[in-house]
């Protein structure tokens, strides 16, 4: 499965936010979208998943125009976790995760044995099994984020879209979510597309990185190809070195010392 965005233009009224964006996302890979604040990263993610309408261009999923999918049908191919989501505080974890099975439910029917098995399975893979009887209110920030990932995972999608999944989490929980994403991709083969702020994380987990600047694609490629001092200067306007350290597979970014 592939997601192709061709010459995408997104905006409100006369304001153009995304201009002539052409990107390809492959299943089974981890793709990160990075860029400065306001560059349009989240907008691309939303347009590619039909959360937002686009004005020009097209989004093709599995060789078919995204607009030709029925809502429920699309929800069985892609799962999207946006930045904004909320659940009534009294919802229990297993209850919330079960909503992920909604796209697979026929009208008026209830969950089958298979649905419950999938719900249990995703709660185990995301490490929220021990929380299943707790209410959302009782979960910490990191736990809540894992519960939401479990919910979209219960949709059994081929590609999972995550919008800044580590924002508002402390470093331990950020790394935990990144590890979870990597494991999910490796063990279940689900494709991951995420908008990330932390370039170090993008560098470490991604198979492919897409850099966006001012609503346009600046570059795309493997982390080593994309994360360069030149890109950091031109896109983020920061001085930095990207260096390899013995014993680490991926290079690290060293920012210039503050004056």
């Amino acid at each position: 499965m592939q997601v192709n965005c061709n010459h995408l233009q997104v905006g409100y009224g006369d304001t153009v936010i995304i201009n002539d964006m052409t990107i390809t996302i492959d299943k089974k890979q981890i793709t990160s979208i990075i860029g400065p604040n306001g560059s349009g990263k989240s907008t691309v993610l939303k347009a590619a998943t039909r959360l937002l309408n686009y004005q020009k261009g097209e989004v093709i999923i599995n060789g078919r125009d995204i607009r030709k999918y029925k809502s429920k049908e699309l929800s069985r191919y892609i799962g999207v976790l946006a930045q904004k989501h909320s659940a009534p505080a009294d919802f229990r974890v297993k209850e919330l995760v079960s909503y992920g099975r909604m796209p697979h439910l026929k009208p008026l029917s209830s969950f089958s044995k298979e649905d419950y098995e999938i719900i249990d399975k995703v709660m185990k893979t995301t490490g929220v099994w021990h929380l299943r009887d707790k209410s959302i209110y009782e979960c910490s920030g990191g736990e809540t984020q894992r519960v939401w990932i479990a919910t979209v995972l219960a949709q059994d999608p081929e590609i999972l879209f995550l919008d800044e999944p580590t924002t508002y989490l402390d470093v331990a929980h950020q790394l935990e979510v990144m590890q979870l994403v990597k494991n999910l991709n490796k063990n279940t083969g689900v494709g991951i597309v995420m908008v990330l702020h932390d370039l170090g994380q993008a560098l470490e987990v991604s198979d492919k990185i897409i850099v966006i600047k001012d609503g346009k694609k600046y570059s795309e490629g493997t982390p080593e190809e994309v994360i360069t001092p030149k890109m950091l200067k031109e896109v983020y306007n920061v001085d930095a070195d990207v260096i390899s350290i013995a014993g680490r597979e991926k290079p690290v970014i060293i920012y210039k010392e503050l004056a």
Binding site: S71, K72, P88, M102, V152, Q155
Partner: peptide, 20 residues
């Protein structure tokens, strides 16, 4: 009941779950 429940999760989550 089903759409009402989904709307409680926020518009974007409801859309993601295939609710119009």
């Amino acid at each position: 009941i089903r759409p009402a429940n989904a709307l409680q999760l926020g518009d974007e989550m409801a859309k993601n779950l295939g609710i119009r």
